[in-house]
Amino acid sequence: MKADNKLTNLKNYARKLKQDLFVLYLSYKDNRTPWYAKAVAICVVAYAFSPIDLIPDFIPVLGYLDDIILVPLGISLALKLIPPHVIEENREMAENMKKNGKPKNWFVGILFILIWVLFAVWVGKVILLEIY
């Protein structure tokens, strides 16, 4: 029975965390959000949705620490930097998005993929220069 309760708590926590990521995304796009809060918010959202982690997930235990510690800390920091009234309005908008379906932003998706590809090419060139 305790395992079921822990699993339910973990699912609720993950759901809230995902909801907060959408709140950060909406707050990033909000003009009332200060620039420094926007910078933190977009970095947290980009890292959370990025397939590339600081510590790769295949490393036992350590691989998931960044997802378990860094993402929640980043979300918490970003939410503290954003004015409370902006968070509340964006929380309502995120809830409506959840009910009505999430809009797709192909431009941002393609931009992130392009950035990671360029980064991979740059790293490849640096490695090849070191070898030769």
Rank of each mutant, 00 (worst) to 15 (best):
M1R: 15
K2F: 00
K2L: 00
A3T: 06
N5G: 04
N5L: 02
L7C: 15
T8H: 14
N9A: 06
N9S: 08
L10G: 09
L10T: 12
N12M: 09
A14K: 12
A14F: 10
R15A: 15
R15T: 15
R15D: 15
L17Y: 12
L17D: 14
K18R: 11
L21Y: 06
L21K: 09
V23T: 13
L26W: 00
L26T: 03
Y28L: 01
Y28W: 08
Y28G: 03
K29M: 00
K29D: 00
D30H: 04
N31R: 14
R32H: 07
R32D: 07
P34C: 01
P34W: 07
Y36D: 05
K38F: 01
K38L: 00
A39D: 08
A39L: 08
A41S: 11
V44D: 01
V45T: 09
V45M: 02
V45P: 01
A46Q: 05
Y47M: 02
Y47C: 03
F49N: 13
S50R: 10
I52E: 11
D53L: 07
D53K: 08
I55L: 07
P56I: 13
D57N: 12
D57S: 14
D57Q: 13
F58I: 14
P60H: 10
V61S: 10
L62D: 13
L62F: 14
G63K: 09
G63Q: 09
G63I: 06
L65D: 15
I68T: 14
I69E: 15
L70A: 04
L70C: 03
L73C: 03
G74M: 05
I75T: 14
S76T: 11
L77E: 01
A78M: 11
A78T: 14
A78I: 12
L79W: 08
P84S: 03
P84D: 04
H85I: 01
V86W: 02
E89F: 02
N90R: 04
E92R: 07
E92M: 06
A94D: 04
N96Y: 10
K98N: 09
K98Y: 06
K99C: 02
N100A: 06
G101T: 11
K104P: 09
N105I: 01
W106P: 07
F107I: 13
V108P: 01
G109A: 04
G109L: 02
G109S: 08
I110R: 15
L111E: 03
I113R: 15
L114S: 12
I115N: 05
I115G: 05
V117H: 08
L118E: 00
F119H: 11
A120Q: 09
A120I: 06
W122D: 13
W122R: 15
K125N: 13
K125P: 08
V126Q: 10
L128N: 13
